[in-house]
Simulated scan of single mutants.
Amino acid sequence: MSYPVLVLLVGLERLAELVVARRNAAWSRRHGAVESGRGHYPVMVLLHTALLAGCLAETGWGERPFRAALGLPMLALLLAAQALRWWCVGTLGPRWNTRVLVVPGLPLVTGGPYRWLRHPNYLAVVAEGVALPLVHGAWLTATGFTLLNLPLLAVRLRCENAALAAGPARPAGGVLAAAP
């Protein structure tokens, strides 16, 4: 498989996430969800779109060669990140979203990967942001995405944690977002 096809497949996976997120957002809003973090969401969309574009640009214009010693382990990491992301989606069911939507009164999800991590989807995002570019040696994209994603991820985690902690009763779990 060629690298542009792999990037295209990841892009299609992102579109599938958006379809699921849109359906789940409608469910959440019907159940009284409160949205937080609207301000950082467009930045997140832009950064994650730039990751895909950067992978293609750097490998095309930068003439990055495929090196199996790095590319194959990174491909395995990328596939593991995708599996973790969809495990999160499946565990959270209709509460999973790319936005921070909390339905008051629902208990926190503590099954699946949430048994071990509070925000396992972000582990998948970080792994993907490193692995996808490095499958084909796009180290500038991997570095740039990681350096820009870390402060954005800090904002996102603060936003989610505050949203989950807000309210008279422990409101809701399941706001963990996959990157668009």
Rank of each mutant, 00 (worst) to 15 (best):
L12C: 13
L15Y: 01
V43P: 03
Y41S: 02
V20E: 13
R30L: 12
L12Y: 09
R38P: 03
P4Y: 05
G39D: 10
R29W: 06
L12T: 05
A21L: 01
R29P: 04
H40M: 13
Y3G: 02
L6C: 00
S28Y: 00
V10M: 05
E13D: 15
H40N: 08
S2Q: 12
V34L: 12
S28A: 15
L9W: 04
A25E: 15
L15K: 02
V10R: 01
N24V: 06
H31Y: 06
P42I: 04
Y41N: 02
P4Q: 06
R30S: 14
H40V: 11
E35Y: 04
L8K: 03
G32M: 10
V20T: 13
V7F: 07
H31F: 07
S2T: 14
P42F: 00
V20A: 14
V43Q: 04
L6M: 10
V7A: 08
W27L: 07
S2P: 14
E35N: 04
G32F: 09
V5Q: 12
S28G: 15
L15Q: 05
V10G: 00
A26Q: 08
V10K: 01
G11C: 05
V10F: 09
N24K: 02
A26P: 02
E13H: 13
A25S: 15
G32P: 07
V20Y: 10
R23N: 14
S28M: 15
E35L: 06
R29N: 00
S28F: 03
S2Y: 01
R29H: 05
V19S: 11
V43D: 01
P4A: 02
L15H: 00
R23H: 14
V43N: 02
W27V: 07
G11N: 05
S36E: 08
V45Y: 02
L46N: 03
R38I: 03
G39W: 15
V45P: 02
G32C: 11
L6F: 00
G39F: 14
G37I: 05
E13L: 13
S36D: 08
H40G: 08
L46E: 06
L12R: 09
S2V: 06
Y41A: 11
L9Y: 01
H40E: 13
G37Y: 10
R29V: 14
V20I: 15
R29T: 07
L46M: 12
L15E: 04
L15R: 06
L6I: 09
A16F: 11
S28L: 15
R14H: 13
L18Q: 11
S36A: 12
M44E: 12
H40S: 12
V45E: 03
N24F: 00
A26L: 08
R30V: 09
A16K: 11
R38D: 07
P4G: 06
R29I: 14
V45N: 00
A16R: 13
S2F: 06
E35G: 07
H40A: 11
S28E: 15
A26T: 11
L8T: 04
R30Y: 08
L18H: 08
A33V: 06
E17T: 08
A21D: 01
V5M: 14
P42H: 04
R14S: 09
L46A: 15
H31V: 07
E13K: 09
H40W: 13
M44L: 13
A21T: 08
L15D: 03
A33K: 01
L9S: 05
G11A: 15
G37P: 10
L9N: 00
